[in-house]
Design a protein around this nucleic acid. Structure first.
Length: 473
RNA sequence: GACCCCGUCGUCUAGUCUGGCCAAGGACGCGACCCUUUCAAGGUCGAGAUCGCGGGUUCGAAUCCCGCCGGGGUCACCA
């Protein structure tokens, strides 16, 4: 048996979890679960000015919602970079002692000037190496730079992109510790991944360019280099990196909209990864089939419409109890009374799930179950509130008052009989009833609606409608 | 600008490593029809890709090689 797989997701809490980060987390999680390995959550909060507790809580909430549980990480201590400063300091000191790093006192303003000059000349700025052999004494304020080889190349064996070669001439002695003593991101990542014994670094493609610098750091430290897999980025419709201007990108925003986490996970997994022609995956199937080999190498455009399709698909799969349960907060938010009868609510969701992609839509489509319609859809009224509507409603009221049982099948029999009797089509009676009961000309099957509403409410709404029509006449 | 990555229907993709089964398959979306008490859902059919472009190698290339073009990413004492 090979060494156990250990992977991590390392967000920096400077914002909410966005879909790109969520997919990175998902791929790591799937890889860990697939190989019975360990999934670690690590918080990269070294940027104290932008990192907040609120964002950490938000990211945790998003991961929980998606069902991506971690084996190691917060709230346990030791998984936040701000708690690990001593570890970075020790590693930096060792590099310095072993001559793999050196003190640098070049003033930032001077470097900035050189950067501008290089840019003007059309070149990439690289640190001159001025302090490399300067032997700066420890008692003057200094930054620490990693000493890189001047020639040769570093090869990244990427599990997705294959062999990627970087010339050392393109790299420079980068800063691992700032003048204020704080470690830099690239250095922390290496030290963390090494000390947490990470075996596979699965992260966004935007980090591929940083990888040779990091590999050189592993080597300077004398540690084995983990395997790398740089997954392509998620793009907006214009094929540039997905951002807020492309619309909702926060995972929690999709939760608020009422998407099922199953749909989100299914969608995200299929965005960039594939398993033949299969589109629908349960969490278990994903764990069973996921592999890095079938992650594509091209960026993928985020397609909300396809997510919505999956939203509807998973709604249809979900058992009534689960739907009833999950719908409650959305009812509350819409200001609708939450019915005490959960079983009744379950039956209501059964009639709604075919046409809803999210819980917000479900509430919107089924509001009439929980409150009397506020009015009647204008266009529907024009079409169905004809002169014949009044006598028809009156007749329906009369027949419905004593009809037994008040259930879909019996109601349909009654309606069909009445339609034949009046010489009209069923649809005429059905639509009239639909508008009276729901306020609109589109709803779940009307006999089910009536049965669910019960005789009392059904009659009351028909009566109300009749009154309105007579008042108008 | 330099370096790196990427390039199959509008979108997600199968196929590319191990050339022929691909005059390119599936899915979302779109159109039509069927079903039907409405709307959805479902079913059937259809439009939609000269596999970024140009050369080569080969009996044969989406698949191998070279060049070009296009898009994206990275170049901080940010993460």
């Amino acid at each position: 048996m090979a060494e156990p797989v250990r992977v991590r997701f390392a967000p920096s809490p400077t914002g909410h979890l966005h879909v790109g980060g969520a997919r990175t987390a998902l791929f790591n999680w799937l890889f860990a679960r697939r190989h019975r390995g360990v999934f670690i959550l690590r918080v990269e909060d070294t940027d104290r000015s932008r990192s907040t507790e609120e964002f950490i809580a938000s990211i945790v909430e998003a991961l929980r919602w998606l069902g991506l549980d971690w084996d190691e990480g917060p709230p346990a201590a030791g998984y936040r970079q701000t708690e690990r400063l001593e570890i970075y300091r020790a590693h930096a000191e060792r590099l310095l002692a072993e001559g793999r790093a050196y003190r640098c006192v070049c003033p930032p303003e001077e470097l900035e000037a050189q950067r501008k000059a290089a840019q003007a000349r059309g070149e990439t700025f690289r640190y001159s190496g001025k302090c490399r052999e300067a032997h700066v004494p420890a008692d003057v304020p200094h930054a620490l730079r990693l000493k890189l080889p001047l020639s040769g190349q570093t090869v990244v064996q990427d599990l997705i992109h294959g062999t990627v070669v970087f010339e050392h001439g393109q790299l420079d002695d980068w800063i691992i510790v700032r003048t204020d003593g704080s470690p830099t991101y690239n250095f922390c990542v290496v030290v963390d991944d090494v000390t947490m014994k990470i075996t596979h670094v699965i992260r966004g493609n935007d980090h591929l360019s940083n990888t040779p610098k990091q590999i050189l750091c592993y080597q300077a430290l004398g540690y084995p280099v983990p395997a790398f897999a740089h997954i392509p980025m998620i793009l907006g419709a214009d094929r540039s990196r997905l951002s807020k201007r492309h619309g909702a990108t926060s995972v929690l925003a999709f939760k608020e909209e009422g998407f099922l986490p199953e749909a989100m996970v299914n969608y995200l997994a299929r965005l960039g990864w594939s398993h033949g022609d299969q589109e629908i995956f349960s969490r278990e199937e994903l764990v069973q089939h996921f592999d890095l080999a079938h992650i594509g190498s091209a960026g993928a455009v985020f397609d909300r419409v396809k997510l919505e399709w999956l939203g509807n698909h998973w709604m249809k799969q979900m058992p009534a109890e689960r739907l009833a349960n999950d719908l409650v907060p959305f009812l509350q938010r819409a200001g609708l009374a939450v019915p005490a009868d959960r079983q009744w609510l379950g039956r209501v969701t059964e009639t709604l799930k075919e046409r809803a992609r999210t819980f917000v839509e479900m509430v919107e489509l089924g509001a009439f179950y929980f409150a009397d319609p506020a009015g009647y859809d204008r266009e529907a009224g024009v079409k169905f509130f004809t002169p014949e509507a009044v006598p028809r409603l009156a007749l329906l009221l009369k027949r419905l008052a004593a009809h037994e049982p008040f259930e879909p099948e019996a109601l349909e029999t009654l309606y069909r009989g009445l339609a034949a009797e009046l010489g009209v089509k069923l649809v005429d009676l059905a639509q009239l009833t639909r508008i009276a009961l729901t306020g609109r000309d589109a709803s779940p099957p009307i006999f089910q609606v009536a049965a669910l509403l019960g005789r009392e409410k059904t009659l009351a709404r028909l009566r109300k409608c009749l009154a309105v029509l007579e008042g108008k006449a």
